[in-house]
Structures are given as C-alpha cells and as structure tokens.
C-alpha cells in the first residue's frame, strides 16, 4: 500500500455531453450526458447490450465519437488526433473481464509493460512493479508466467498493470465477470482503495451484490443505450416523456437498483 499511498493521483475527470453512437442501424448510445470529478467512483450497470462497453470504448478512444462531446483526463476526445491517442491511454487504465494479459510473459513483464513503453530506467521500473505487486498480493508470483496463474490472479495482474502508471481515470469493463463472488469483493476493495487515492473510476458490472455492498457509490444504469438511472447530480437521466430530466438527487445504490 505504500506505493499507492505515495502515488497520490492528480486530478482526473470525465465529461460526456449528448453522446450518441450507432453501429449501422443499431443505436448503441443515445444522448448520454454525465460528468465525474476527481476521485469519483461510479458503478455502470445495465443488461447486456445496453451500451456499457461502447461507452467505455469511447472513453479510452477505441471508438470514434460520432455525436456529442467527450473530455477525459483534461483531453478533448473530439479533437484528439489518432497520433495522440497513446497520450490519452497513458492517463487511462483499463481492466477487462477477459483480463487481456500476455499469457506467455511473466507477471513482472506484464505489469512493467506500460512503464517499459515510457522508457523508464530498469531500476525504477523494478521498484514500481514490486510495490504494486505487493499491494495486490502478487509478490510471490512475480516470476511466473501469467498463463500459469488462476483467473483471480490473472485479473489482479491486469489491475496491477492498470494501476502501475497512476492513471487519472480507471475504466473497468466487468472485471469481476469471470470471478467467484468472494474474489469479486476482494478485487472491488482494490478498486475502492485506488479511488481513495484520487483516481476516477468507472466500474461496469452486472453484480447487484457488489453495488449493494457499496451503498455510497454513484450508480449509473444504461438501458438500450440511454441512462435510465443515476444517483448523482452530474448525470442526465433519459425518460421517455422528456429528453433530459433534472439530475437525480444522490441516493444509495440499493435504492436505485430497486427503482426508487
């Protein structure tokens, strides 16, 4: 934890305005608007195909912006040239359900990957990798190949890789989807710890249990590409009768999930 404490995150924020996105005739996102400040943590929920992954992909510039305006980590994605996308991704950590790690490389190599790309000195890289590994309970596996680890350990490697560069924004696309409930809760704690040091976190999940265990967290629910629930003032909720409603008052996640 020393490393994470020492590496307090600088300001990070996300602003999305009237974002819409289509895949052919299918509209994946409909007029989505919300904003998050430094240190905010939001659960992004909704059924499969609701647009969660599409939203996250736009936030890390894996999809182009068709309509609307998006700012992430002080960068306007509408004006972001493709040659500057790596700069954005150095500010944004991403964790996926399918881990996206290099199975043939060691834990150490996987975690060090983003630091390697920055050209840091080997000693510096080693120090940071060891600190993050210790924080995530991976110090005993550092020389093992990732392909030989369990699913939970592989996911921790993926999280460590996202953490190691102190991103301003952390996007997690159902990172606990392949893990058992107990392990999911433990990983969730890691994200919360990370948030405590100032990172802005969007955590996409189906798990109501996870959200119920963190009643103070923001929750944003997407259905059919539109925000149908949000419990903090910075989100615009879509209702059939009106395009934009007043932002909801902040409510506990459990209340929101009950449809309150």
């Amino acid at each position: 934890m020393f490393y994470l404490a020492a590496a307090a995150i600088v300001a990070g924020m996300i602003r999305v305005r009237h974002l819409s996105h289509s895949f052919g005739p299918h509209q994946a996102l409909k007029d989505v608007t919300f904003s998050l400040e430094k240190g905010d943590f939001v659960f992004l929920s909704g059924p499969s195909g609701a647009g969660k992954t599409t939203l996250l992909r736009i936030l890390y510039a894996s999809l182009p912006i068709q309509r609307g305006e998006v700012n992430v980590a002080d960068m306007n994605l509408n004006r972001l040239d493709s040659s500057r996308v790596p700069l954005l991704r150095r500010q944004v950590g991403v964790v996926f359900q399918d881990f996206k790690i290099l199975p043939l490389r060691t834990v150490e190599e996987n975690i060090a990957l983003p630091l390697d790309l920055r050209g840091l000195a080997p000693k510096h890289i080693e120090r940071r990798v060891r600190a993050v590994s210790r924080a995530l309970g991976l110090e005993g596996h550092i020389k093992l190949r990732c392909g030989d680890l369990s699913g939970g350990e592989q996911q921790r490697v993926a999280i460590a890789r996202a953490f190691v560069v102190n991103p301003k924004v952390l996007l997690a696309d159902e990172p606990t989807g392949n893990l058992d409930p107990e392990l999911s809760l433990r990983l969730m704690e890691l994200f919360k710890q990370f948030q405590a040091y100032g990172a802005t976190v969007i955590f996409a999940t189906h798990s109501r249990e996870l959200m119920n265990r963190h009643p103070g967290a923001y929750v944003m629910r997407l259905e059919d590409g539109a925000i149908t629930y949000a419990n903090w003032p910075g989100a615009g909720v879509h209702r059939p009768a009106q395009t934009w409603a007043e932002p909801l008052a902040r409510k506990p996640a459990s209340d929101m999930e009950r449809g309150a």
Partner: peptide, 16 residues
C-alpha cells in the same frame, strides 16, 4: 493480434 491490442491499450505508439 491480441498482443498488439494490449500494447495499444497500454499507451504504445505505432513504432513501439
């Protein structure tokens, strides 16, 4: 291809 995707996510430039 999987490796390339990961490198891009980690902030790799094309020449990386």
């Amino acid at each position: 291809a999987h490796e390339i995707e990961i490198l891009r996510l980690a902030g790799a430039y094309n020449w990386h």
